[in-house]
């Protein structure tokens, strides 16, 4: 099961390696990890995407909380969230298929951010599923390079009643 974990940490040297070391040392899955400072001084937010059975996820959350530099861990699985990630995709674009690629760009509300005679570079923003879908559709044209961010997520302001 895929879980998105929101982890508030003290923004100090070595904190990233404490977290990544925890995952590698204990054999936990780490699909993506995104980190940047938040509003509060000295605090960063890490958004970690991981997979595992319930018992493993519970261990991951507890182990993260145990780290002395970790302030708060939220498993986003327990609430409705907004999730986004971004990918830059450089795809082969010949005269014959350029129009079709642009149609995909249109349908998925991507942007063309760079262009040359035989390539298009697209920017796609969306949840994990959307980015995966765009990549799958573009594969047959030949993707030459790809750069992706990890997922970032926030809880929705209005949570459905349980």
């Amino acid at each position: 099961m895929r879980h998105v974990l929101s982890v508030l940490v003290e923004n100090e040297p070595g904190v990233l390696s404490r977290i990544s070391g925890l995952f590698s040392g204990r054999g936990f899955n780490l699909d993506s990890l995104n980190v940047a400072p938040v509003l509060e001084e000295g605090v960063s937010l890490m958004t970690i995407v991981t997979r595992g059975e319930q018992q493993i996820i519970e261990q991951i959350v507890k182990q993260l909380r145990k780290l002395v530099t970790v302030i708060k861990v939220t498993d986003m699985h327990d609430s409705t969230t907004v999730e986004r990630e971004m990918a830059l995709i450089k795809v082969n674009a010949t005269e014959s298929n350029r129009a079709e690629i642009l149609r995909i760009v249109d349908i998925f509300r991507c942007k063309v951010v760079d262009v040359s005679l035989d390539e298009l570079t697209l920017e796609v923003i969306g949840d994990h599923g959307k980015v995966e879908a765009v990549i799958a559709l573009l594969e047959r044209f030949g993707i030459k390079e790809i750069a992706r961010t990890g997922t970032v997520a926030l809880r929705r302001s209005m949570q459905p009643e349980k």
């Binding site: 390696s17 404490r18 925890l22 040392g25 002395v68």
Partner: peptide
């Protein structure tokens, strides 16, 4: 760095 995984902190 070396002792990160074997210290409490």
């Amino acid at each position: 760095g070396i002792t990160r995984p074997c210290t409490k902190h």
